[in-house]
Amino acid sequence: MNIIYMLLGVSVVVALIFFVAFIVSVKKGQYDDVYTPSVRMLFEDELVKPNPDKNQSDSKEKSN
């Protein structure tokens, strides 16, 4: 049962790692703006292929 000491040590260390990760992320400002990233993550690739996009929107307009 002495393994408990090790398990205990491991669990506290794991908890501490997450705790430090939390503190670091707060310090870096991750919690300052919690809205914009949620929108930003939805963009990404559109710029890579702007032309097909443009054509699409053009054709949509024409069909109307």
């Binding site: 702007p50 443009k54 929107s57």
Partner: peptide, 11 residues
């Protein structure tokens, strides 16, 4: 925007 391929703005 259109001439800079940024018309995605309107989509």
């Amino acid at each position: 925007l259109n001439s800079n391929d940024l018309s995605y703005y309107y989509d």
